[in-house]
């Protein structure tokens, strides 16, 4: 590329970034015009990134105190021992299944934590024989939120139920059971909630395959049974 064209492209890109698209569109040569547009895309892409970086650095300056995950772990360590499961990465808290009910009770009733609402419970198929149950907790009093993850093996997927603490967990856990087959021990009424009682398999596991028929109706998408 000759220097003249490069200069022209730089010029029109700078103008386009300022909001004036006419110079680009007025370039006669098609090749040069497309090059200029490509350069514009590149320039635009690099723009917001720099903005985000500056924001992030501002935030990190402000944030000097502990994150909510660290506060929760510190508070739990006073009452429980050996409850963490593996390395913690700071974005969520990975705990073991055994003491989950007591830990949940502490999270809900401790004055400084006070997670009074269970926002969301979801299952996750980690593949390789592991399932995970994830809880998003939120405090309407202190306005903080954390995520708790509990890993169990696919052969023995038992997790203590927390439905007596947060009644909303009643249906959440039934749904997770329905979709992943995670068994919540101590749940008063653990049945399938969305699928029929006599459905086979756990649909949201990654290796799920649909059953062929349900009460004589063809289930998979191929309509061979009736044509």
């Amino acid at each position: 590329m000759s220097e003249d064209i490069q200069l022209l492209i730089d010029d029109v890109v700078a103008k386009a970034l300022a909001g004036d698209m006419d110079p680009i569109n007025n370039i006669e040569d098609r090749v040069t015009r497309s090059k200029a547009k490509a350069a514009l895309v590149k320039a635009k892409r690099s723009q917001p990134k720099t903005e985000i970086k500056s924001n992030a650095s501002e935030n990190s300056d402000v944030k000097a105190k502990d994150t909510i995950e660290q506060v929760v772990i510190a508070s739990l360590s006073k009452n429980f021992s050996n409850f963490l499961d593996g390395e913690q990465n700071g974005e969520w808290i990975q705990i073991k299944a055994e003491n989950w009910f007591e830990i949940a009770k502490h999270l809900k009733e401790n004055e400084n934590l006070y997670f009074d609402s269970l926002q969301c419970n979801t299952g996750f198929d980690l593949e390789g024989g592991m399932l995970e149950s994830r809880y998003n907790l939120h405090s309407m009093k202190h306005l903080h939120a954390i995520e708790i993850r509990i890993k169990v093996s696919i052969e023995n997927p038992d997790i203590p139920s927390v439905e007596s603490l947060w009644r909303v967990a009643d249906w959440f856990e039934r749904e997770t059971y329905d979709m992943f087959g995670i068994n919540f021990t101590g749940h008063r009424d653990l049945r399938r909630i969305l699928l029929p009682e006599d459905w086979e398999g756990w649909p949201l596991r990654k290796n799920y395959e649909e059953q062929e028929t349900y009460h004589g109706i063809v289930v998979p998408k191929v309509k061979e049974g009736w044509e």
Binding site: L194, L195, P203, Y208, E210, I217, V218, V219, K221, K223, W226
Partner: peptide, 19 residues
Amino acid sequence: SGGPYWQHGYHVLKGVDLV
């Protein structure tokens, strides 16, 4: 025909003319 749920809808009837 099952519409948008035709491909992965394990619980969707693929057309009411099946029943």
